[in-house]
Design a binder for these strands. Structure first.
Length: 273
DNA sequence: AGTACGCCCTGGCCGC
DNA sequence: TGCGGCCAGGGCGTAC
């Protein structure tokens, strides 16, 4: 389940491998992975022959900036992977590889996705922000405790708010649990009830946890892999996520799991008030 | 406005 | 061994 740290890790690798290179061909074996009102035929037509000027990230989406007015947008969903394949180290294409971006010299980026929740689409650069409709980037320096305070002026439960991409971009189920533990805030607490000390603590925890996870090259709790097929290591440092019944590293109490809007939510009742 | 739920989808796991 | 049933969940649409 790639969230901001996993997608940022992929982005950094993609910059090294793909930036400045020409897309010579695009293979789409599962057309329904192409979404948002563009046909796969048109996608291929508008992508092939163009050079990738830059690779950006917005929330959990990767943006391949082309040397035309278009951006190729990739969202990995739950189980999506981007895998680097070269002549020296070719990667086998299996039944879960739905899209292949072909560069020159037999270099490829494979888009593999078991559950098919991911998507690829094309949008004009000037429309990207409108289409993505995403909230604040939590690692930008503009993301201050004051901005966070404005975002949290809602009666939504703080856990749901952290995962709402239109409010804050890039945080999913794993990191929202870990961030709230780090901040010592109960996940079911109403966002608007947070005091200024809690907001500061939450802001700090967001930066801390996301940077830590990026330093780990992400979290390979399940399907996520780095561009070269390796694993991230953040899963070894979970403090609450998927640790139901285990003891809290801080107070030795028992980690609890509850259902919240169809998602599991883990926290320590002793540390998170 | 907030929330619950179903849908998309498949591998993995459980119980029988 | 094998099979049915259920679960995980990001994002979106819909109903309340």
């Amino acid at each position: 389940m790639p969230e901001l740290p996993e997608v940022e890790t992929l982005r950094r690798s993609l910059v090294k491998k793909v930036k400045g290179k020409k897309i010579v061909d695009l293979t789409i074996t599962l057309p329904k992975m192409v979404r948002r009102f563009i046909s796969w035929e048109e996608l291929i037509k508008r992508v092939c022959g163009n050079t990738v000027l830059a690779i950006k990230r917005r929330g959990k989406s990767l943006l391949f900036m082309l040397d035309t007015s278009d951006v190729l947008i990739v969202r990995l969903g739950m189980t999506g992977q981007l895998i680097w394949s070269s002549e020296k180290r070719p990667v086998k294409v299996d039944k879960y590889t739905h899209i292949i971006i072909h560069l020159e010299k037999d270099e490829r980026v494979l888009f593999r996705d078991v559950r098919q929740f991911g998507e690829v689409y094309l949008e004009e650069k000037r429309n990207v922000e409108n289409i993505l409709r995403m909230g604040a980037e939590p690692l930008n320096k503009e993301f201050t405790p004051e901005i966070l305070g404005m975002i949290t002026s809602s009666t939504v439960k703080i856990k749901n708010l952290l995962m709402d991409q239109r409010r804050i971009a890039g945080i999913g189920n794993i990191y929202s649990d870990e961030i709230l533990f780090e901040a010592g805030i109960h996940p079911l607490k109403k966002a608007c009830s947070l005091g200024s000390a809690e907001l500061k603590s939450l802001h700090n925890a967001i930066g801390l946890v996301l940077h830590e996870a990026i330093a780990c090259k992400g979290d390979t709790f399940s399907d996520y892999r780095t561009l070269s097929g390796g694993q991230g290591t953040y899963q070894h440092f979970h403090r609450v996520y998927q640790r139901e019944g285990e003891s809290c590293s801080r107070c030795s109490g028992s980690i609890v799991r509850v259902k919240l809007s169809g998602r599991s939510c883990h926290y320590c009742p002793g540390c998170q008030k």
